[in-house]
Structure formats: structure tokens, C-alpha cells
Amino acid sequence: MSALAAREVVAGYEPGLPIVKGASLSVAGGEIVALLGPNGAGKSTLAKAMAGLVPVASGAVLLQGSDITAVPAHLRLKRGLGFVPQTENVFANLTVRENLELAASLAGLDRRAAREEMFGFFPDLARLARLEAGRLSGGQRQMLAVARALLAKPAALMLDEPSAGLSPRYVAEVFAMLARVRQAGVAILLVEQNVKAALELADRAVVLVDGTVRLDEPARPLLGDPRLPALFLGAREHA
């Protein structure tokens, strides 16, 4: 049984105008699946729909076998699904500590214990505990956003382009962090534009083109596979 799955999901911002047109994918515990595709393919929309932020017109989102399609977004973290958006993924007006403690309290956890556990996992955050999150660097923000999503010990974690806007050094740091999270048995769905870095890290890759899944294969062999640029360029020419 997969930890996280989408089954024939149709989703979009406006009724009758789907951006995701019947996409299916699954992620097992301790596995990283890279969700790739050209701009406008619907990658972020699919992730947001799975997180409960975009309405799902049809299909289902499954978390450890349970259908969570109708579960409100604010209850999904407690149910075991964390999501880290691409931008504005920390509360800039709250300190690092407050960011973590708020998520812990809302999940019904002992906020001090949960915070200290995350500080143990991400020692850099402990050093920055009293700093307002708005003053963190891009890499530190990603670290905090991931820590906040991991507080409730989710079975699955989705990240929307965590490398966007980061320098190569920070991208390497963030991806190393994700490798450690995978070792903890968490299922990770990684939406990425940085195809090479994502394929090097991921176990499997799903390529989405125009809202539908066109490829779902082991990641590493896709490095240098001519089908990948063809799918990306094809979409561009088609557009």
C-alpha cells in the first residue's frame, strides 16, 4: 500500500476549467518521487489539490489507503500529510520558535517537546530560534518550512519546488535534508523544475504534461533519456 496516492484526479481553480486532467501517482514510505514537467503542466496545481488548497472535481486523494479528498486542508497535517508551498512558506512575522510551536500546538502535540525534536533534526534552526522567520535566508526558510511540516510526523510530505530561487549551495543543502527525511521513512513527493538535481535525488519520476501523467519510471535511468527533453520540448512547441 502506498503512503500517498492520487487516483484520476481532475482539479482546477475554476469550475469546468481543469488544469489537472485525470492524474494518478503514488508514493511509498521512504521513497522520493519527483513530479516533473514543463511550465504550466499542472504540477503545482496537483500538489495543491492533494493538499486541499485547490478543489478536486473528480478522482481521489489517498493517504495510507484512506480517502482524504473531502478532508479540509487544515486537518490534513494532523492526518499525516505535510505540504511545503513554493513561496511564502513560513510565517514571516513569527519567530522560528513560534513557527514551530504554532504547528505543534495546532496538531495537538506538546509544543516544547515537538520543537526540541525538530531542533535536534535541524540544529541550525535551534541557533536561529528567536529570529523572525522573515529575516531568514532562502535555504533557512526551506529548512524551517520542512521542519514545520514534519512536526506532526506525517506519513507523507509534499514540496513545491523547494530549490526555486536558491543558490546551488542551498539547493544541495535542501536536497541533502530531504534525503535524511526519506531515511526516516517519510514518503516524499517533490515537485521540481530543476530536473537534473531532482532525478539524482529521487527514486522515481512522474512527468506531467498538460495535466496528464506521461511517464512514471525509476528516476536515475531518466538522466540522459531522450524522451524527457522530447516531452518538455513537445509541450513547449504544442503551447
Binding site: A51, G52, L53, P72, A73, H74, L75, R76, L77, K78, G82, F83, P85, E88, N89, V90, F91, A92, N93, L94, E98, E101, L102, A103, S105, L106, A107, R148, A149, A152
Partner: peptide, 24 residues
Amino acid sequence: STLGRAMRATAMNPALARLAGADV
């Protein structure tokens, strides 16, 4: 307080507050 912090968080970013578990 959790509610007070949730109010500050929701004021900053309602969508993220929902993802963090706040009933907006």
C-alpha cells in the same frame, strides 16, 4: 497562546495557516 499565534499567522498568510493546521 495558540489562538493568538494562529491569529497572527492567519493575518500573515491564510493559506499557509490552513496548511499549518489552523481552522481559518
